[in-house]
Write a protein that binds this DNA or RNA. Structure first.
Lengths: 166, 166
DNA sequence: GTCGCTGCAAAGTCTTTGCAGAGAG
DNA sequence: CTCTCTGCAAAGACTTTGCAGCGAC
């Protein structure tokens, strides 16, 4: 089995394209393109992270101190973006949802329980098996999500160092 | 690729065993074995479903109308059981967590977005790929979860019928 | 101008916590 | 007996909603 089927961190679309698509989408539903919606999308795009609504709101406040964007607007916009499949939400063990742009190539998540870092990957063999399984059951697959939880390399090394110190 | 590697609904342990393990676990941490904890575990075992704390609480009230078990106790016990890896929680798109006994063989989930039904499955090929991926990154896998969302066979058929009627 | 959008604050959910009495060991 | 658990109600966290004024088109 070759490793070439695994791709990490594959970003495939450009912001301008995303923005245009978003505008088209809004127009189609008779919705308005507001500065708040633009900033939320842009911030989500620039932050290559998985953000909670709260974190996204704080980030926006930091980057645009003169603008006042309410947390309610963040929630409303994220709901809109999720409905439109522009972003995807990821639910975690503890509490809260995290959002990420969903327009990139579909991918799964490796989550470090120590430092919270999330690594994305795509694996063809897994995707194929998913299709095989759903096909066998006559199940129509619309989406899927996979998370692997554990300890990343860095944190393992950090632990070793700490143990030696003691 | 053979289909024999897929196993659906594999239940592997008995309640008596589970109960003994739970008692041992409690003793080890100087915790007490109470009727509430027993009923919560038992109800979770007998219900072969994925339950929210709320649903579990209601089910207990229905099955044991003379007992008064507070919702707070359900939350506290589920947290305890999750910490001890007796149950696993599953987070959903919308809101809330669902719990299931985690002592069965590890499995993934097929979730119907139409009727909410959850089917469990295990696929060796996917498990192998997961190991391969984490190994390549030096990531220590502790757990993983996979959900496939879509429309189950029954609901697809139901939809077709409804469309014909109109 | 119209009608959707926003910020604010208030209202909902869902979950956790403090406390005094009950009960397991 | 001791010390943890429990139920209750109150507090908290997170999210949604109502509303009046604002702003995109």
């Amino acid at each position: 089995m070759s490793n070439t089927t695994i791709n990490f961190q594959d970003r495939t679309i450009e912001y301008q394209q995303l923005l245009e698509d978003f505008k088209t989408l809004l127009k189609k539903s008779n919705l308005k393109f507001t500065i708040q919606r633009e900033i939320i999308l842009e911030t989500l795009y620039n932050s290559n992270e998985h953000l909670t609504p709260e974190a996204l709101h704080q980030l926006i406040q930091k980057q645009h101190p003169n603008l006042k964007i309410g947390i309610a607007t963040v929630y409303r916009t994220l709901a809109l973006l999720e409905e439109s499949n522009v972003v995807t939400s990821l639910s975690f063990g503890a509490q809260g949802k995290k959002y990420e742009l969903g327009a990139k190539e579909h991918h799964d998540h490796l989550i470090c329980l120590e430092c919270g870092q999330i690594t994305e990957f795509v694996d063809e063999a897994i995707e194929k098996r998913q299709h095989a399984i759903t096909h066998e059951l006559g199940f129509k697959m619309l989406d899927h999500s996979m998370q692997i939880y554990g300890i990343c390399k860095k944190c393992q090394e950090k632990k070793l160092t700490t143990e030696k110190e003691n």
